[in-house]
């Protein structure tokens, strides 16, 4: 992370909105459920100039109230980056944790957001409370997270946090790798049998932004919609292939899945493969070339006759 100004979240939001530097501010607010935060998206009125905005006391008050509601703490679980797709042509500021910041880098690499219209507010994070554990613990993913501090930011709220040692690969994936193929298949089958093809994982994934997802395409029809697990497998295997070298491990898919399908296992596996094979970590470096856009003449050839 490059050195940048440490600021107060609300002061910054107020200033950015008031000066018209941004039209949309994407952050967090307290949610109605315990131990959760909800997204808070603050717009200046569409099409209203800065001056008009200032002359409208109601709008002014509304804006001030919203800015006051902004929070950032260990409940702010959601990856807000997905909202960037919705405000493609607007000037946006967004609050990102370390993991989320990698999603932003991914989108910059893939030209999905205009850096000139984006203000990134980094939020160093020690990990998010796992509400399923009643707040006693942080998420496993957070314990294994290698980027507690954002990799890209224009402003930072709060001091950088220490980066604990993290395993190269999540112990669960490592354990699964060691099982015989039969048992790995059983696990995969079990996970896939849970899937109801609701596509929440895709909809929440910042890297899934195709206009027409292959799963929705009819010509050709890649994915069937029966409850045969092979349909879920087709969907997930192809989606995993699409995310190869791109998934940053933000965990949005797993958190959003209503059926608790553990997609992290598979994304983690591919992520570690890509790192080991090509030394590449998605979302770490805006100018790095993604491994699947490249090739090496000396790439592994052992699996080919």
């Amino acid at each position: 992370m490059t050195a940048c100004k440490q600021v107060d979240l609300k002061t910054l939001a107020r200033e950015l909105l008031a000066t018209g530097k941004v039209e949309v501010f994407i952050g967090y607010q307290v949610a109605t459920q315990p131990l959760m935060a909800a997204p808070l998206i603050i717009h200046t009125a569409l099409g209203a100039s800065h001056a008009q905005q200032a002359s409208n006391p109601d709008a002014e008050r509304d804006l001030a109230r919203k800015v006051d509601a902004l929070i950032f703490d260990d409940r702010c679980e959601m990856n807000l980056v997905n909202y960037l797709h919705k405000f493609k042509d607007r000037k946006v500021a967004i609050v990102v944790k370390g993991c989320d910041s990698r999603s932003v880098v991914g989108l910059l690499q893939e030209k999905q957001v205009d850096r000139k219209k984006l203000i990134i507010i980094g939020a160093p994070c020690r990990g998010i409370i796992d509400r399923r554990q009643a707040g006693s613990e942080i998420y496993t993913a957070c314990r294994e997270c290698p980027v507690h501090n954002p990799v890209i930011a224009d402003y930072v709220i709060g001091a950088p946090v220490p980066q604990p040692e993290t395993p190269e690969l999540s112990p669960e994936v490592e354990a699964l790798r060691k099982l015989p193929a039969e048992q790995r298949w059983e696990r995969f089958h079990k996970e896939m049998s849970k899937c109801i093809l609701c596509y929440a994982c895709r909809n929440l994934c910042p890297a899934c932004y195709c206009k027409t997802c292959f799963a929705d395409a009819s010509k050709p029809k890649w994915v069937g919609r029966t409850d045969d697990p092979s349909d879920a497998m087709m969907f997930h295997l192809q989606r995993l292939m699409h995310l190869g070298g791109r998934c940053t491990g933000c965990g949005a898919c797993v958190r959003g899945c209503p059926m608790q399908v553990d997609l992290r296992l598979y994304n983690d596996h591919l992520r570690s493969h890509v790192k080991q094979e090509y030394g590449f970590m998605a979302g770490m470096d805006e100018v790095a070339q993604p491994p699947l856009a490249m090739y090496g003449t000396d790439d592994c050839n052992e699996f080919i006759r």
Binding site: A181, M233, G245, Y266, H269, L270, L292, F303
Partner: peptide, 10 residues
Amino acid sequence: LLKELLDFVG
């Protein structure tokens, strides 16, 4: 990548 994935899922 596909081979890695298919191997891993079993």
